[in-house]
Every structure is written in structure tokens, then in C-alpha cells.
Computed example of a mutant assay.
Amino acid sequence: MRLVSAAETAPTTHPWVVHADGLRVRAGRHLAVDGLDLRLGTGVHGLLGPNGAGKTTLMRALATVLQPAGGRLALLGEPVDGRADLRPVRRALGYLPQQFGFYPRFTVREFVEYMAWLKEMPKPAVPGAVQRAIERVGLAAKADARMKTLSGGMLRRAGIAQAIVNDPAVLLLDEPTVGLDPEQRLDFRELLRDLGVDSCVLVSTHLVEDVVAACTDVVLINEGTLVFQGTPDDLIAQGGDGDAGDSPAERGYSALLRRHRTGAAR
């Protein structure tokens, strides 16, 4: 019997979990992501930008829903631009789109189980993983309720549960806090911090304060290009008293967008 070295049993690591160079992605005929360079590692990354900035198109490309029109994109060290078989990469992804489909008569448990099956999870692991995901989003009391009976906030939490059921290495959440009340948003921030310990989490949102409270890294895009990437403190430092916003983070956000649009440097 051959002895197995520690290097052989160690988990695979990658310099960057998400690595994009000159990424270009179309939304219909429109080039929504245009020459984007991006590096994301383990942690919670907040994706900010005004309406039409290309956030959703970028998320769909990272989820392998949209194929890049140009540039290079790699997830977990594997190139996905032009790759024929994306199943190995998709097994390691979790994705919550802005609007997700579901069968109304499914219970919450059946819905999350169905998504686990689509992700090709091992059958013996599914029941425990489903229960854990439902509990993590605070829906244990509604596990056997039909999806059609849930409120908007509960539906959003069910969507988060299906996204995390496979313990993804890359988790993509597009506007996950829509419909959540303030208390649920606080719980969600705590969940994000927990998930970001071992995974690369990218959260697209318009709520700058959620990003500052829960994220280790901030990514700001506009017109499909990268405007800024840094820590929440770096974002805050970009703003001043004369910039628009009700908080230091919002003033930093508006200052960066203003300078990008006018071509002005700090």
C-alpha cells in the first residue's frame, strides 16, 4: 500500500477564484460588460453600480448563463469562455438571480431538494444539506409550506437556500435582500460573513450600507467597466463633505461615479 502525501490530499487552491481579463459580455445586442478586468478570492465581495452598469450581465456570465463575447474568464482555475462541458464548474457554483423560477406547489423542502438534484449532489448527502440550508436562512418553520404561500421576503430566503445547498465555492447573489425586512437583513449580513470564510461570495446590491457592513471587498462598475475595487474603508475614503449621500459610504460611492463620468482623477 502506497503512502499518500499531505500535498496529494490538500484541497486544490487557485491564485484567484474569479479571474477576468478584458471580459466582454453582451446583453442582447448591447455590450453590457466591456473590457472588464477582475480578480476575486475567498471572502465577501459587494458589487455596486447604478442601474444599467452591467451588474446583472456580469453575474450571469460568472454563473455561466451567458457566454463571453471576448476576453478571458476563469472560475476556480478553469477557463469557461468557449468551454464545451461546464458541468464540473457548475457543480461548484451557487446562483440566485434577480428573478428565479419555481414550481408554486412545491414545498420549500421540495424546491431546495430539486435544486440540489439539478446540481448533481450525491443522493445520500441531499437530505442533510437541504435541512441545513433551510435552517441557515431561517425557514425551518416553513420547510413544508408550499412556495406559493410564502411572502416576498420568504421567497427570497428560499432562493438563497437553494443557492447555498451545495456549499458552493463560488456564490453569486443578485439583489438578495429585496423584500427582506431590517431584521432579516441583519441576519443575512451575518450569514454572508459566515459563508465568506471558505467561499468566494459576490453580492450585487444597491444598498451601499449592506456592502460596508458585510463585505470584505467592494467592486464598483459603471458602463461595463471597473471603476473601483478595494475595502469598505477605501470606498469611504473616496468621498468628502460636498459629495452626495447620507453616509460616508454613499458619499464615497457617489464621488467615484462622478469622477469616472467626468474623467477626473482623485
Rank of each mutant, 00 (worst) to 15 (best):
L3D: 11
T13Y: 02
V17L: 09
V18L: 01
D21A: 13
V25A: 00
R26M: 13
G28R: 09
L31A: 12
L31W: 10
L31D: 12
G35S: 04
L36M: 11
L38K: 05
R39P: 00
R39Q: 08
L40Q: 00
G41D: 03
G43E: 07
V44N: 10
G46Y: 01
G46R: 06
L47I: 03
L47M: 02
G49M: 06
N51F: 05
A53Q: 07
T56W: 06
T57L: 09
M59R: 06
A61T: 07
V65Y: 04
L66M: 04
A69L: 09
G70W: 03
G71D: 00
R72M: 07
L73D: 00
G77I: 09
P79L: 06
V80A: 03
D81P: 00
D81N: 09
A84Y: 06
L86Q: 01
R90I: 07
R91W: 02
Y95V: 12
Y95P: 05
P97S: 12
Q98G: 15
Q99G: 10
G101E: 14
F102H: 14
P104D: 12
T107K: 06
V108R: 02
E113H: 12
A116V: 08
K123M: 04
A125R: 13
V126S: 00
V126D: 02
V126W: 03
A129T: 10
V130S: 01
E135I: 11
G138Q: 08
A140M: 13
K142Q: 14
D144S: 12
T149S: 14
L150E: 01
S151H: 03
A158P: 03
A158Y: 01
I160M: 04
I160C: 02
I160A: 02
A161C: 05
A161N: 07
Q162N: 11
I164A: 05
A169I: 07
A169H: 12
V170R: 05
E175V: 10
T177I: 13
G179R: 13
G179F: 11
L180Q: 09
L180M: 14
Q184R: 14
R185G: 03
L186V: 15
F188T: 12
R189C: 13
R189I: 11
R189W: 13
E190G: 12
L195Q: 11
V197H: 13
S199K: 15
L202S: 00
S204L: 05
T205G: 02
T205P: 01
L207C: 03
L207I: 13
D210E: 15
D210Q: 14
V211F: 00
V219E: 00
I221K: 08
G224S: 05
G224Y: 02
T225A: 15
L226A: 01
Q229S: 08
T231F: 05
T231L: 06
D233K: 06
L235C: 04
I236M: 08
A237N: 05
D241I: 05
G242D: 15
P248H: 05
Y253L: 07
L256K: 09
L257A: 08
R258V: 11
H260K: 14
H260M: 13
T262G: 14
